[in-house]
């Protein structure tokens, strides 16, 4: 199996690497939105996480410390959004946009002295036995821990929202904050937690770009992936499984079109660059159109909660 100069095994393996940052960020944002908060600052939290992770990894020479710092950094930045929207009752859309601008600027500032450095390498986990299966082994079972973490998170978040009491309360807050308050649930505390979780996941996703996917620091390294993550949450109708499909589809076609470009395919480059966006939107729209798509949005999404 060889399509010109493209090796399908390498292609599939890099698909997973390319999709992981989108998947992490989109999962985090999905949880935030499930609690009724629309945080448009994903891109900003990602790039801030990317720079925090990069700096921490260089200084400690430990990629693990890098990822921890990235999650903390992303969560810290998201808390700013939390204070603005939950305590000072700012409208969520501009607060989120401001967060992206702030995050991008902060990241450029902090990353200035780290350009051109190379971070310590994240070791791949070779899963015994499974890794030696032909084709599937190298594609699926020879990745670093974060790839597996992101996949585990899909299941964990799905189960958390569907089966646990805390997940039920989170969904309840996103569906009807006044009723949740009347039943005695702490709407703001739940939302703070969800915002923080979304920030941490976005930070992880950002660090995955700067530490594994690229791996180095340049300004604007996230290149709009945060926005894609936001769109995927919507098109995936706020479901973890569909977020996985969306993220992998986008990542997959991105990798494929890059390979096609490198292989000199006779398709205009612009069309190829456009293809991941088109395909992702198309597929997820078709999926969600089957059963009342957009109505599955949390009813309180983006609405401000006043205690009265």
């Amino acid at each position: 199996m060889d399509f010109g100069s493209i090796n399908p095994v390498v292609l599939m393996a890099s698909l997973m690497v390319a999709s992981t940052p989108i998947l992490l960020a989109a999962l985090g944002e999905m949880v935030t939105e499930k609690s009724g908060v629309l945080n448009l600052g994903v891109e900003g939290m990602m790039i801030f996480g990317a720079v925090c992770g990069f700096i921490a990894a260089i200084e400690t020479q430990s990629p693990t410390m890098g990822f921890i710092a990235a999650a903390v950094g992303g969560a810290a930045l998201s808390m700013l959004f939390g204070f603005l929207t939950q305590i000072f009752l700012t409208t969520q859309v501009p607060a989120g946009l401001a967060l992206t601008l702030l995050g991008t600027g902060l990241a450029s500032l902090l990353g200035q002295n780290y350009q051109g450095m190379s971070p310590p390498r994240m070791p791949d986990l070779h899963i015994p036995v499974l890794e030696s299966i032909p084709v599937i082994g190298p594609v699926i079972f020879q990745h670093d821990a974060i790839v597996y973490l992101s996949l585990i998170m899909v299941v964990v978040i799905w189960a958390f929202l569907k089966f646990t009491r805390a997940g039920l309360i989170l969904r309840a807050v996103g569906e009807n904050h006044a009723a949740a308050h009347a039943l005695g649930y702490k709407v703001k505390a739940v939302r703070f937690a969800a915002i923080g979780f979304g920030g941490a996941m976005a930070g992880l996703g950002g660090a995955y770009i700067s530490l594994v996917r690229v791996p180095q620091w340049t300004d604007g390294i996230t290149a709009g992936i945060g926005w894609i993550a936001l769109a995927i949450v919507v098109f995936a109708s706020w479901r973890a499984g569909r977020v996985l499909i969306g993220a992998y589809l986008f990542g997959g076609i991105t990798v494929l079109q890059l390979n096609l470009q490198a292989a000199g395919a006779k398709v205009p480059v612009e069309l190829l660059s456009m293809s991941p966006f088109l395909a992702t939107i198309l597929v997820l729209v078709v999926i969600s159109a089957r059963r009342h798509g957009a109505t599955s949005a949390p009813a309180m999404l983006g609405r401000i909660f006043h205690t009265s």
Partner: peptide
Amino acid sequence: FQHFSLFEALTVAENVALGMENP
């Protein structure tokens, strides 16, 4: 409550569970 304190997107059982201490 007068204005029902219910969650429309959730099931009856989930709504009931939300109103209980130790469901």
